[in-house]
Amino acid sequence: MADATLASVSFDAEGYMTDPNQWSKEISETLARQEGLAALTAEHWKIIDFCRQTGLASGKAPTLRQITTGTGISTKDLFALFPKGPAKKVAKIAGLGKPEGCV
């Protein structure tokens, strides 16, 4: 569990980073492995980058539907790229808080 990359990063009780400014690409890769993703591809990064941008601008991690409409990536592909709860998984990996909102 202990990973040097995450040594100085603070998380809340549910595993979301509490300070998005502590985020780095290396942290994303380590968190992605913890979430069960083998490797982050260009498609993964497209989604992570989008979430970072909108998340930092609005202070809220985007919901599933905001991700699909914002990136143009289909629901099917999103669930394939980040299986089992894409929006929450991406929020974690992107160093953002838990996404709020129902759709």
């Binding site: 299986p83 709860g85 894409p86 129902c102 759709v103």
Partner: peptide, 11 residues
């Protein structure tokens, strides 16, 4: 529909 979508979102 809403709860089902939320459930999928929670894995």
């Amino acid at each position: 529909l809403i709860m089902g979508w939320a459930a999928l979102g929670n894995g």
